[in-house]
Amino acid sequence: MNGATLRSQIPSFGWIKQCYRTIDRRLRKNLKAMIIVHPTWYVKALMAVIRPFLSSKFGRKVQFVDSLWELSQQIPLEQVHIPDCVQQLDHSWNGSRDTKR
């Protein structure tokens, strides 16, 4: 959940890389998607820069969605903890579109 995160609070490339490496190889291979909700231009640019250093299979798994409604089209939101502040931000950015459809 990236929306409206201050640039100073976005994790560094090194931290993201370390997190990725801590995931067991079997789990990484079975990962279906890494979905980034409310991506900022900075996150999209960062992903474009680091994509050459990622495996091509993993790079294809990275997806951006601009709303919780879009996320709900891919996964049941009941299975995800979405902080209240993210829900409020989504509501202010995307109106009152029902995310439970």
Rank of each mutant, 00 (worst) to 15 (best):
N2E: 11
N2L: 11
N2M: 07
A4K: 02
A4N: 12
S8V: 13
S8T: 10
Q9E: 02
I10M: 01
P11H: 13
S12G: 15
F13P: 04
G14H: 11
W15F: 07
K17P: 01
Y20P: 01
Y20S: 09
R21S: 02
R21W: 08
I23H: 02
D24Y: 01
D24K: 09
D24S: 08
D24E: 09
R25S: 15
R25T: 09
R25N: 10
L27T: 07
R28P: 08
K29A: 09
L31S: 06
L31A: 08
K32Y: 07
I36A: 00
H38E: 14
H38Q: 12
T40W: 03
W41G: 00
V43W: 05
A45E: 02
A45M: 04
A45P: 00
L46P: 00
L46C: 12
L46K: 04
M47Y: 15
M47F: 14
M47L: 13
A48H: 03
A48W: 09
A48N: 14
I50S: 07
I50V: 14
P52G: 04
S56I: 10
S56V: 06
F58Y: 15
F58M: 10
G59A: 10
G59P: 05
G59Q: 14
R60I: 00
R60Y: 03
K61V: 04
K61S: 09
V62W: 04
V62G: 07
V62K: 05
Q63Y: 15
F64Q: 04
V65L: 05
V65K: 04
V65M: 10
V65H: 12
V65G: 10
D66V: 04
D66W: 06
W69L: 02
E70H: 15
E70G: 00
Q73L: 07
Q73Y: 00
Q74F: 03
L77M: 06
L77Q: 01
E78Q: 12
H81T: 07
H81N: 01
I82Q: 05
P83A: 12
P83F: 03
C85V: 09
V86L: 07
V86T: 08
Q88P: 02
L89D: 08
L89H: 10
L89M: 11
W93P: 00
W93C: 03
S96N: 15
S96K: 15
R97H: 15
D98A: 14
D98G: 08
T99S: 02
T99V: 09
K100P: 02
K100W: 14
R101V: 13
R101P: 05
